[in-house]
Amino acid sequence: MQKNLQTIIRKAQVSDIESLVNFNQLMADETEGKQLDSDVLTLGVSNLINDASKGFYLVAEIDEQVVGSLMVTTEWSDWRNSEFWWVQSVYIVPQFRRKGLYSALYGKVRALGDEAGNVCGYRLYVERENLVAQRTYEALDMGESHYLMFESQ
């Protein structure tokens, strides 16, 4: 993190919904070329912020401007009798990338997980072609899983 950037990492609140919706739309377009429905997305973001059982968002704020975010959801592991925390919907405003913001956000996720006391690991998925993000995750001691992801809609 650059020393001249005063960064605050905090849990998102209702006043952050507009920024989070915007970040999700930008991320979906940038990574997958998808256009997300604003009404559905706004409801989805709002529901998560208003129901902690669904997870939480963290935001990175510089000079009172939200410039990055990520979402955390949980997965129960019966094998471990604890939770995996999934990091999702990561977005950093382009001019603030490569300045340590994701590291700061992820550090806060880890600190909150340690505080919760029932987290057995942290997971995320990344586009196969996104080598820059993969290097960032590897630098934070995350390694490629042996699992493949399948989905149905």
Rank of each mutant, 00 (worst) to 15 (best):
T7L: 14
V14L: 11
D16H: 09
I17N: 06
S19G: 03
L20R: 00
L20F: 01
N22G: 02
F23H: 12
N24V: 03
Q25D: 11
L26N: 09
M27S: 13
M27R: 02
A28I: 07
D29F: 14
D29S: 13
T31S: 14
T31N: 11
G33H: 11
K34C: 13
Q35C: 13
L36P: 06
D37H: 02
S38E: 11
S38N: 11
S38P: 11
D39K: 03
D39F: 04
L41W: 02
V45N: 04
S46W: 00
S46T: 15
I49R: 04
I49N: 12
D51I: 03
G55D: 09
Y57W: 15
Y57P: 12
L58G: 12
L58K: 07
E61N: 07
I62Y: 08
E64K: 14
G68Q: 10
T74W: 02
E75F: 05
E75G: 09
E75H: 11
S77D: 06
D78K: 04
W79P: 02
R80Q: 12
R80G: 07
R80P: 03
N81C: 14
W85E: 01
W85P: 13
V87C: 15
Q88W: 01
S89K: 08
I92H: 01
P94N: 14
R97E: 14
R98W: 02
R98F: 05
R98N: 15
G100N: 02
L101R: 01
S103G: 15
A104L: 15
G107M: 04
K108L: 05
V109Y: 03
R110G: 00
G117Q: 03
N118Y: 09
N118M: 09
L124P: 07
Y125C: 10
E127W: 03
E127G: 12
R128L: 10
E129W: 10
E129S: 14
E129L: 08
L131D: 13
V132S: 12
V132C: 03
A133C: 07
R135S: 14
L140P: 13
L140K: 05
L140E: 13
G143K: 12
E144P: 07
E144M: 10
S145Y: 12
H146A: 10
H146P: 08
H146D: 11
L148W: 08
E151C: 07
